[in-house]
Design a binder for these strands. Structure first.
Lengths: 234, 234
DNA sequence: GCGCAAAATTATGTCGACAAACAAAATGCA
DNA sequence: TGCATTTTGTTTGTCGACATAATTTTGCGC
């Protein structure tokens, strides 16, 4: 069962409690182990992780800052919903960030950056080979995050990270529908993008990233459209 | 003296403590009442605001999430430094956000949005008339935030808000150098931008916003270049 | 007087507990 | 029986206190 990661979690050092809770919750939220709209009980969490409510609350504040949970004053905090009605804003920002981060990577990348990027691409290719959809989602995220890092702009890195996380949730909903034709195409597209970054060809990087983003957006829209359920913001 | 706002602060309702501290600290940081690099003492704050350390810590976590303070583990939390060495990344993101938010405003604005925007522009014009540099900074921020809101994209609104805040700190350093020629020009440029938004002329909005951003960036760069001090990341 | 080690001090991270606020169940009245 | 009100219960927001890590001060030997 894909229940919320049942970590007993003893032996923690001082000063890492908040990070610990934060990462567990974040992971559970992005994997949809905690589905959107589900309440997050502080006391329950405190018992499960055998710690006080204080670090848990601080982790929740942090998650709220990133938009992963919503806190109703004096009422329960719930996992943030996916706003299916305004997905075009998400797609718009996503496409823009794909473009600018890839552009900047082509401009500022070092050889070290390139090595890191290639590692992530290899991991993505392996995931595709193994037809492991969950791993594809995760490694794809890591690859593009690494490209953004190579672009050196912390503001873009931050926003893009948020968007990639949200995309991870979105993909996670539909990962069953993955066939293996599309992911292979992504591997090739990634290769082209990386080549452009290596060649420091900014124009090509921009164009390829734009096409790649369009591909992904189109696929997501197709998945959503094919879905029989009428997804509604709860 | 422009000391940290000495609010005695009694009579608070339950559930607003965190927001209260958050807004005070945020204001002090953006006004440079708390200069970059200065430590934030939780106990001192707790005494001054006559409240426990818990809500103060949660406010600090939130501020850390927005990059306004930096938390060293098991060590003091300090007001975030201004990274003068990488300002071009800031300018780059700033220019891009000016453009996309103004574009989207021209696309999605309602009449209500327009009224709000005009109000902010009027306030900005008054600040310029009164030669009140601090008010100019604040109202300019509000105006562009309102334009971003009219564009309806929460991701852009969020990032742009962060950038505008950072810009507020930056401008605050140099506000003494303001002459009254430039701000008047900004009033006119704002008028043009608002007209384009009203006419739903996306191309014009994009072009004007781009020029406007270039103006502001150029002015900031000039101020920094003229500054005799060698600003260094402490 | 200088350098290093140990103790004291300060500040952070965490804890358990209390009180206000909200939600739900139970009671009273028409 | 239906509705309003009170009562009960649960959960959040805040508090004061303790323990641990880091920093400063003190003390000792050279």
């Amino acid at each position: 069962m894909t229940k919320t990661s049942d970590t007993a979690a003893p032996e923690r050092k001082r000063g890492e409690g908040v990070r610990f809770v934060y990462e567990i919750l974040r992971d559970d939220i992005l994997n949809l182990a905690l589905p959107p709209g589900s309440p997050v009980d502080e006391i329950q969490l405190a018992e499960r992780l055998s710690m006080s409510r204080t670090p848990i609350r601080e982790a929740l504040v942090r998650l709220a800052g990133e938009g992963l949970v919503t806190t109703l004053p004096n009422r329960s905090t719930v996992v943030a919903n996916i706003d299916f009605l305004n997905l075009h804003h998400f797609f718009d920002a996503m496409t823009l960030m794909y473009r600018v981060t890839t552009r900047l990577a082509a401009e500022y990348r070092t050889d070290g950056d390139l090595a890191v990027i290639r590692n992530h691409q290899a991991a993505f290719a392996r995931a595709v080979e193994a037809q492991d959809a969950l791993a594809m989602i995760a490694t794809n995220r890591d690859l593009h995050a690494a490209i953004a890092e190579a672009g050196r702009n912390p503001y873009y890195v931050s926003l893009f990270g948020r968007l990639l996380d949200e995309g991870r949730r979105l993909l996670r909903i539909y990962y069953l529908s993955f066939d293996d034709r599309l992911p292979r195409r992504y591997v090739d597209e990634h290769e082209d993008i990386i080549a452009a970054i290596e060649a420091r060809d900014i124009a090509a990087a921009d164009r390829l990233a734009s096409q790649h983003a369009d591909q992904i957006v189109a696929q997501l829209q197709r998945l959503i459209a094919e879905d029989r359920r009428r997804p509604v913001t709860l």
